Computed example of a mutant assay.
Amino acid sequence: MPSRSISRPLLAIAAAGMLAVVTACAPSPAAPEKPDASPAPVGTPSEAPVTPAPETPTAAPTCETLISPTTVDALTAEGWTVEKREFTIAGEVIADGMQCFWADFAVASDHGQLYGWAPISTERAKTAIDTLIAEGWLREDSDRGVYITVDPKFAFATDEEGYGMTYLFGDGWVTLSDTKQGLVLIEAPQQ
């Protein structure tokens, strides 16, 4: 798997994009708190995620719409282009999904970034999660869904928190990036 190598200007642009996403998702100061809201129950390792899905997409995603326009601009400014591939989990192709590998294909290098998205049924998500865990991947439940990440001991590259390649399973969708932090940049429709 390619390692990540990003210039400082690209990191700054990506960080600004992530800040915009976090800021946009944060509750407004006037938003009332819900003191009696209890946390969602944590599922067992074989349960599929329960994250509610956003609105249905109006158009099929492309590699250029899978991530934010700011990120696309930053990657193309670096001279990178994108190569679209089939979305796979443990070697199995997920129909109607895609993996987008961004890199400078004009030079021989292992530097690039991977972003992926696919629609997935609850049953298939459960099977995929169980398969990855059986292969040594690690599970982490969150309010966003179920993260399945490669054991850091076997990661080709890791983010600042030590996460390598990571899948995020939601309700009817799955995303993928070469690091967990990279998942924040994905803006694909989540059916």
Rank of each mutant, 00 (worst) to 15 (best):
M1V: 14
M1N: 12
M1E: 12
S3N: 14
R8W: 08
A12M: 05
A15T: 14
G17S: 13
L19S: 11
A20F: 04
C25P: 15
C25M: 15
S28V: 03
K34S: 14
A37Q: 04
P41T: 04
G43V: 05
T44L: 11
E47P: 14
T51H: 14
P54K: 09
E55Y: 14
P57M: 13
P57L: 13
T58V: 06
T58E: 07
P61C: 06
P61I: 04
T62R: 01
C63T: 03
E64D: 09
T65A: 03
T65H: 04
D73N: 09
D73Q: 08
A74D: 01
A77P: 09
E78S: 05
T81N: 00
K84C: 01
R85I: 04
G91S: 00
V93I: 08
M98R: 10
C100R: 00
F101Q: 02
A103D: 10
F105L: 07
A106W: 02
V107D: 02
V107F: 02
G112Y: 02
G112H: 02
G112K: 03
Y115M: 03
G116Y: 00
G116F: 01
T127W: 12
I129H: 05
D130G: 05
D130L: 07
I133P: 09
R139K: 03
R139T: 05
E140P: 12
D141R: 08
D141I: 05
S142V: 00
D143R: 11
D143S: 08
R144Q: 13
G145S: 03
V146E: 15
I148A: 06
T149I: 05
V150L: 02
E160S: 13
G162F: 04
Y163D: 11
Y163H: 15
L168M: 01
W173P: 05
V174C: 00
Q181D: 13
G182V: 04
L183V: 06
L183D: 04
V184N: 09
V184A: 11
L185A: 14
L185I: 15
A188D: 11
A188S: 10
Q191S: 10
Q191R: 12
